[in-house]
């Protein structure tokens, strides 16, 4: 055996590598890692920073060339214009004795109200129907179950651009064009599979012995649900709702093709404003921040479920 003649120290030496076991290698690794970290963080975070500082610049400052990296005169002008234009669009000439005259044509508050209506409606539909289906798909064995699960998984992939034209045809046929109900139903259909996957994961992991214990504690099926399953499911239910809500809140394609400007939700409304002439970027940034706040609040809550929800539970967090 060769092992008899191998000196352990020598063998150890042969496994040394320049990158890992020498001082220059150590510093090179440090430089590489921190350089990469810095570069990537800048790429990811700078646009967000830019949105925030732009929102706090004055209208004259955003027109400066070259642009200023730090606002010279931080101002709430952008936010003021957003609110003023909404109030003006709402028919207010003055508000609490404050004269309103707005040259900006964007009614952000109305957009937000429309989006809320659509997103909450879609979220509730998806939550209720999705949870019921998930419970059965998790607890029962029956023919076609795998096919149904595959179908739902696949249906997560298609919505949006691939079906925008036929969806428009369908909604026209149903006489639902330019109605929020159409969006509620479509978003509900898009997000219900998400909810099914997420809640099925919850029910799959639900310990059977807890249900047995409830039966032993003399619970009827309804009482088991009311006092045991529902309280334990509440976190997953909230996460499911937020998922559905966020998707509806952010969706552009269907909102753009199925609504007229009068009923626009946030994404198409913002789009119209951004693509208008003389875009006032501080107002866009301010409006962007306002419409992003619900999203950021939601993110904090669903972070734990994020990967699981997105991959239909293929990857568990």
């Amino acid at each position: 055996m060769a092992a008899d003649t191998t000196d352990p120290a020598e063998e150890f030496g042969s496994n040394r590598s320049w990158l890992y076991d020498t001082t220059p290698g150590f510093y090179l690794r440090k430089v590489l890692i921190w350089g990469t970290t810095l570069g990537l963080s800048t790429f990811i975070l700078f646009p967000l920073y830019w949105m925030v500082v732009t929102a706090f610049k004055t209208t004259s400052e955003i027109q400066q060339i070259p642009p200023t990296v730090v606002p010279e005169t931080p101002s709430l002008e952008g936010f003021r214009l957003v609110v003023e234009s909404s109030l003006a669009a709402g028919g207010f000439d003055s508000f609490l004795g404050w004269d309103i005259s707005s040259a900006i044509d964007i009614d952000v508050l109305l957009l937000i109200a429309n989006s809320l209506k659509v997103a909450v409606g879609a979220g509730l539909i998806a939550l209720v129907f999705g949870t019921i289906a998930a419970y059965v798909l998790s607890q029962q064995e029956f023919r076609g179950k795998n096919a149904i699960m595959s179908l739902l998984l696949a249906s997560l992939m298609f919505p949006g651009t691939a079906i925008m034209v036929p969806e428009w045809e369908l909604i026209s046929t149903l006489n639902l064009f330019n109605s929020h109900l159409a969006l509620i139903l479509i978003y509900g259909a898009m997000t219900a599979p998400f909810v099914v996957w997420l809640m099925k994961g919850f029910f799959d992991d639900f310990p059977d012995s807890i249900l047995d214990a409830a039966r032993m504690d003399q619970c009827t099926p309804y009482e088991s649900f009311r006092y045991v399953i529902a309280p334990m499911a509440v976190n997953s239910l909230i996460a499911s709702f937020i998922f559905a809500f966020l998707l509806a809140w952010n969706e552009l394609v269907f909102a753009l093709t199925l609504l007229n400007q009068s009923k626009f939700t946030v994404p198409p409304g913002l789009l119209t404003f951004v693509q208008g002439f003389n875009t006032q970027w501080n107002v866009v940034a301010a409006a962007s921040i306002l419409v992003s706040l619900p999203v950021l609040a939601g993110l904090a809550y669903i972070q734990r479920y994020f990967v699981q929800g997105l991959t239909g539970g293929a990857i568990k967090g």
């Binding site: 019921i132 045809e169 369908l170 139903l185 259909a189």
Partner: peptide, 24 residues
């Protein structure tokens, strides 16, 4: 019986996602 609770989701997906594809 076992399919009843899944029906609403299947109906939503069927009408608003699958049917349009077929029509297209």
């Amino acid at each position: 019986r076992v399919y009843l609770p899944i029906l609403p989701v299947l109906a939503l997906v069927g009408v608003f996602i699958l049917y349009p594809i077929a029509q297209a």
